[in-house]
């Protein structure tokens, strides 16, 4: 693999050609939040935009950009942080995110990121949408108030036998809605259902019959912040690959 050199906030760093910019930024010590990004192996989705940074003078989502030689990146700027924070605020007003009553509290990416961007209250008016719960399938239910349309489940959860999509988005724009194929969902194994729930960065995809099985006080971000975890994971990507 060939190496490239780029500058991040004035500091020259090295990376491997083709690495996702967001990983390189984090490895070099700056935390940039992500919500839709499932990691480089699974590909980037580029939907949430909370990893927006300035690259060669223009704003771009840093998970969507492979690093290249000579790239000039501004990750830790007031303007960039404000955009990232605003996008998180948008998500909190678009849906209904009531952390204290949510099963995923303490292990929810949106919640963790909300703290990290210093969000106290959204600058945008809260919309209090009225949505419909989908509880038709046996193992999983959808709490639509919380969907952020990251598309993780749509792209990454497939029926193991046929490869068909289990989750879909219907309609477009502000009318988008997450849907679940009941027949296919009922064929999911317990492990796949658990994976789907963990893949969901919020509390939208939930397993039935196992609510609050994980004690409050021992959940992911109650042990270690989403920032610490992200920066640690990024260090791991730097370890020389055995080949």
């Amino acid at each position: 693999m060939s190496q490239v050199r780029l500058t991040i906030d004035g500091k020259e760093v090295e990376a491997e050609m083709g690495e996702a910019l967001v990983d390189v930024i984090r490895r070099n010590g700056t935390y940039v939040p992500t919500l839709c990004y499932p990691g480089k192996e699974q590909g980037c989705l580029g939907t949430c935009r909370v990893c927006t940074c300035k690259v060669n003078g223009n704003f771009a989502a840093s998970c969507t950009l492979p690093v290249s030689d000579g790239m000039v990146v501004e990750a830790d700027t007031k303007e960039g942080k404000n955009i990232r924070k605003a996008i998180v605020e948008m998500l909190f007003t678009e849906g209904k995110h009531n952390c204290p009553s949510c099963e995923k509290s303490g292990r929810c990416d949106l919640q963790g990121v909300g703290y990290e961007v210093d969000m106290m209250v959204s600058r945008f008016p809260y919309r209090f949408p009225v949505t419909e719960i989908d509880d038709q399938s046996e193992k999983i239910w959808l709490e639509r108030d919380r969907c952020i349309f990251c598309q993780r489940c749509v792209n990454l959860v497939k029926d193991e036998e046929t490869g068909k999509k289990i989750f879909n988005i219907s309609n477009r724009g502000g009318k988008s809605r997450i849907e679940i194929d009941v027949e296919l969902a009922n064929r999911m194994s317990e492990e796949q259902a658990l994976e789907a729930m963990e893949l969901c960065p919020v509390g939208c995809i939930l397993r039935k019959k196992v609510g609050f099985n994980h004690p409050i006080g021992q959940r992911k971000y109650e042990v270690k912040s989403i920032r610490e975890r992200a920066l640690e994971d990024a260090q791991a990507t730097a370890e020389p690959s055995v080949s």
Partner: peptide, 8 residues
């Protein structure tokens, strides 16, 4: 609707 800034 695929990305947040445009959709919201």
């Amino acid at each position: 609707g695929i990305c947040v800034p445009c959709r919201v």
